[in-house]
């Protein structure tokens, strides 16, 4: 990064060589940054002001007190704790399953060569890119007609269960993760597993003791990315979950909107609460998230 920065004379250097070249750039960037931040700050500001205050002074004003009442109200009245719990119940198994299955698949197609290697990889990648709406009706009907005992599903079918959401999330994310991991594993030196093989290591041992540990960075990046994506997913729970108290947060937040109709302060508070976990991930694991995004794109 330092290397990239010092070589381009046209772009100047921090040592003070030709700083004037950047005034226009900064002006543009600051303008854009303000435009990018304003919606977030407006949301935060609205959420901090009691409804009574905005009713009195209007939303566009600096008058009146500021407190966290909307947050506690949105949290309790909106039942957001339940939504967050549901998100956890969907996201954690989905991400773990996706990574386990994708790493196995990637290992098999990248470290061994056999007939349908490429075909499968192509199919997996293509599946990930389909618009989910294309699969909606058949999946709905398949799940509706899959009977389950009432002891594990109150609907008696796969509908309105987390199993349905998790299964489809896993199937849909498998393609992307397999693609990324296969590329990553292909880049690992072939001698690693070869030597292990000579020592009599089984396929499972090669996978679990050699390739998987070496793939940790890619798994960490994908894990972060998938957590955020699944946290943000709206569509599949919308399609399969029909009990209000089983919705995950991103789908549930839209109920809040119906519930707090016209109460923009409460909606803003609910939105802010929903954004917080993503921001925590952002601050703590940004590099993994970005790495995950770009791993898929910057294949060579």
């Amino acid at each position: 990064m330092t290397a990239t920065a010092t070589i381009a004379p046209a772009t100047g250097s921090p040592g003070g060589g030709r700083p004037r070249r950047h005034y226009g750039t900064h002006l543009f960037l600051v303008t854009m940054a303000v435009m990018w931040l304003v919606p977030l700050l407006w949301t935060l500001y609205t959420s901090l002001r009691p409804k009574a205050v905005t009713d009195k002074y209007g939303y566009w004003s600096l008058h009146g007190s500021i407190n966290l009442d909307n947050f506690t109200a949105a949290w309790t009245q909106g039942g957001m704790a339940t939504y967050f719990g549901n998100t956890l119940l969907i996201t954690v198994p989905s991400v773990v399953l996706t990574l386990v299955l994708a790493s196995m698949m990637a290992f098999a197609v990248s470290r061994f060569s056999w007939k349908f290697n490429l075909t499968l990889l192509v199919l997996f990648t293509a599946g990930n890119m389909l618009p989910p709406q294309v699969l909606a009706a058949p999946l709905f009907e398949m799940f509706k007609n899959t009977p389950l005992p009432y002891s594990i599903s109150s609907s008696g079918t796969l509908l309105d269960t987390y199993y349905a959401v998790i299964a489809v999330e896993v199937a849909f994310q498998l393609g992307f993760c397999t693609f990324v991991l296969a590329n990553y594993m292909k880049a690992l030196p072939g001698g690693l597993t070869e030597a292990a093989q000579v020592d009599g290591a089984s396929v499972w041992q090669q996978y679990s003791r050699i390739i998987l540990p070496l793939s940790r960075p890619a798994l960490a990046a994908l894990g972060t990315l998938e957590v955020v994506w699944l946290y943000n997913d709206y569509f599949w729970p919308l399609l399969f979950i029909h009990s209000g108290d089983r919705l995950p947060i991103t789908t549930g937040i839209t109920n809040l909107q119906g519930q707090f109709l016209l109460d923009y302060n409460m909606i803003a508070a609910g939105a802010t609460i929903t954004v917080i976990p993503t921001l925590v991930v952002y601050l703590a694991l940004q590099r993994h998230f970005v790495a995950g995004l770009t791993l898929g794109a910057s294949k060579d």
């Binding site: 894990g223 694991l285 790495a291």
Partner: peptide
Amino acid sequence: LPPSTPSAIPSDSRLNRRTLLKGIGG
């Protein structure tokens, strides 16, 4: 924002271990 080509990532092993632990927790 890290330099994020795949080849650049394995160098940082400290973070990896931490994330792995997180993974196990998961």
